[in-house]
Amino acid sequence: MNYLWEQWLTNLDQVRFVLQALDIALVLLLSYVVLVIIGEKRTLWMVRGLIFLMLAAALSKFLGLALLGFVLDKLVIGSAVAMAFMLQGEFRRLLELLGQGRVWELLSPSREAMPQPDNVIDEIVDAVKELSQNRTGALLILEIDKLIDERDFTVPGVRINAEVSKELIQTIFQTSTLLHDGAMLVRGSRVAAAGVILPISERVASRQLGTRHRAAMGITERVEHCICVVVSEETGSISLAEGGILDRPLTSSRLRSILRSKFSKSVDREAVAPQLRSLGRRLGSLGVNYVLRLFRLPSSSPREKK
């Protein structure tokens, strides 16, 4: 009887250990999904900081540090709310996929926009320079790393899907055309759409800034992975909007150097999904083998030939 009781307690301890390991694995899986959705090294530091706060809060509770645990819990909640504001697009994609039942798509990174070659940047800068000299208003949206969800636009505009050229850009923004009032969406080396209507920024701006400048600020506030090039119709000055902030006035050479630095394959925006998938497969294999050894079952890993 004592032997059966001890055996039952041993099995119960093993089940509790497996449940604790499953709890940790689910938290790691959730963190993995968040990292894959974000996919940018610059933002990953915020996620790592949040995970560190969560681990510190759990450790403080385990050690019985009630006051420190209380403070860290509040910091975790505040950090999560702040990240929800900063990563609105990513969290919206997470909730949409969960609501539609497309859970497995969370483990695959979103499609990436192709970086602009130097000749495309030259065509854009030459067109902007000509438009600036002629004081022709223009607004161009350039995607960085990832595609923009068209639901972030007020009106998606007219699809064009043509190669980027100086002549095409200048023609679209002539005042005699029907599409000159909207923005042009440049996706990789192609003009994806024109006549795009953008949300207007609610920030208090200078009276010298017109609708184009406020629209550039508005879309870059909402979408992190894009920049906007603006040509003023009144003064002909060139501006660049990023993160809701305008950099103005710019010369054509300065604009060229900024665009080349933005669209070069730098380390600052390297994708992390392939490395995370490889790490996830290795951790999953180790976890399965450990559970099999725990219950004294044959391992699923291939045996080495002697």
Rank of each mutant, 00 (worst) to 15 (best):
R203C: 10
L9S: 00
L259R: 03
V196S: 03
V47L: 12
R222H: 08
G243P: 02
K146C: 02
F153T: 00
E150A: 11
R248D: 07
R111N: 04
A183Y: 00
N289I: 06
D13W: 03
T177I: 08
W8E: 11
V81P: 02
T154P: 06
E234Y: 13
A273M: 01
K306F: 10
K166H: 03
A80L: 15
G236A: 03
R248L: 06
F91V: 11
R212F: 10
V18T: 09
L44D: 09
R277C: 12
S264V: 09
A183E: 01
I144C: 01
A127R: 02
F85Y: 11
L87C: 11
G157Y: 07
A80D: 08
S239M: 04
I172Q: 08
G287N: 10
S257R: 15
F85I: 09
G49Y: 07
I77G: 09
V231S: 02
R214D: 07
L107Q: 08
K306V: 14
D73H: 12
A80M: 14
M114K: 12
R190K: 13
D73M: 06
P156K: 00
L26M: 08
T154I: 10
K61C: 12
L53W: 01
Q170V: 09
G195W: 05
K306S: 15
L259S: 05
A138S: 01
H213S: 14
L95V: 15
D73S: 15
L22P: 10
Q133W: 06
V15L: 04
A58T: 13
S300V: 06
Q275A: 14
L68M: 12
R269D: 06
L30A: 09
A80P: 10
F17T: 03
S31N: 12
F263N: 02
T43L: 15
V272Y: 13
L12C: 04
G89L: 13
G69T: 05
V164H: 01
S301F: 10
L68P: 07
C226R: 03
F153A: 03
N134L: 07
L35K: 13
E130T: 11
V196K: 00
